[in-house]
């Protein structure tokens, strides 16, 4: 099926139509629709267990949707061949929450790995590129260190350098500031802004850090229990009247407003072991 939206407007980088993702028989995303424009930074917000990480994993092709469409660079990831997916992935970079650097390789080897695997560039060129990427993330001179010798913030930066190594058009971040102290986290936010400025990349960030989100976002979506319940610019989101959104932005502890009967039901239900 051709993608009418991508054809009509070539500025759209990613568009999702009624995306559903399940683990086993448990549905995590219940029909997500959204669009990301080229060169835009989109922040996906949500509490833990909201499905925001699943959404990110689906966008990079690590989870297969159970139904719906993911249009990315003219291809539908939901029905793509492995070779085509690999082709698209060469133009994507992903920075994982834990960094996911290979412990048996130096930082330089980590950053150069995609280039060594996918290109026929000379070793000397790859070495220069690796050092340039490390310089760009503020880790110049660290290429011979092993990941275990780096601090948390430096690992994140090294992971960003690796994500940048193929000059991606789209960069994904999973919780870039998780587990970092506020000053280091602010440094990572600054880095994202610099990269956006210099490379005009489309950037998608999953986070629950509000300060960071408002600093870097052009567009935001707020996802709750597997559906997007609010989206817009940071200013629009601040003015959003929905109680669930307000709660999240005003950092009110969740009062769990379950239906009374459901709650009673849950408390008094006879115990059954989940059978699989």
């Amino acid at each position: 099926m051709p993608n009418p939206i991508a054809n009509a407007d070539s500025d759209v980088m990613i568009s999702l139509h009624d995306l559903r993702v399940s683990y086993g028989d448990r549905e995590i995303l219940h029909g997500v629709n959204m669009e990301v424009k080229r060169g835009e930074t989109l922040v996906i917000l949500g509490g833990s267990g909201s499905g925001k990480s699943t959404l990110l994993r689906t966008l990079v092709g690590l989870e297969k949707p159970s139904s719906g469409e993911i249009w990315l660079k003219g291809k539908n990831l939901a029905s793509i061949s492995d070779d085509d997916l690999d082709e698209i992935r060469r133009k994507m970079g992903m920075s994982f929450q834990s960094g996911a650097l290979f412990g048996s390789m130096t930082v330089g080897e980590n950053v150069g790995l995609p280039l060594r695997e996918h290109t026929k560039l000379e070793d000397s060129t790859i070495e220069i590129m690796t050092r340039l990427k490390l310089e760009q993330v503020g880790l110049g001179g660290f290429e011979d260190y092993f990941p275990a010798q780096l601090s948390g913030g430096m690992k994140k930066r090294a992971a960003v350098a690796r994500a940048l190594s193929m000059d991606p058009e789209i960069l994904f971040f999973d919780e870039p500031s998780a587990g970092l102290d506020p000053i280091i986290a602010a440094g990572i936010d600054q880095l994202i802004l610099e990269l956006k400025q210099a490379f005009h990349m489309t950037i998608i960030v999953v986070t629950h850090e509000l300060a960071s989100a408002f600093l870097i976002a052009d567009q935001m979506v707020y996802i709750d229990k597997g559906v997007i319940i609010a989206q817009g610019t940071p200013a629009e989101m601040k003015a959003n009247p929905l109680p669930r959104v307000r709660q999240f932005f005003d950092r009110v502890a969740e009062p769990e407003v379950e239906q009374e009967m459901d709650y009673l039901q849950m408390l008094t239900a006879t115990h059954r072991r989940p059978n699989r």
Binding site: R57, V60, G61, L62, L85, D86, E87, R89, R90, M92, M94, F96, Q97, S98, A100, L101, F102, G103, L113, P114, E117, H118, R162, M166, F172
Partner: peptide, 22 residues
Amino acid sequence: GTMKVNEEIDALETMAISPVQF
């Protein structure tokens, strides 16, 4: 297994490197 837990296998896949091959 350690690589799986550390998301390194996922990282290989997003870099279009087959974990089986690698």
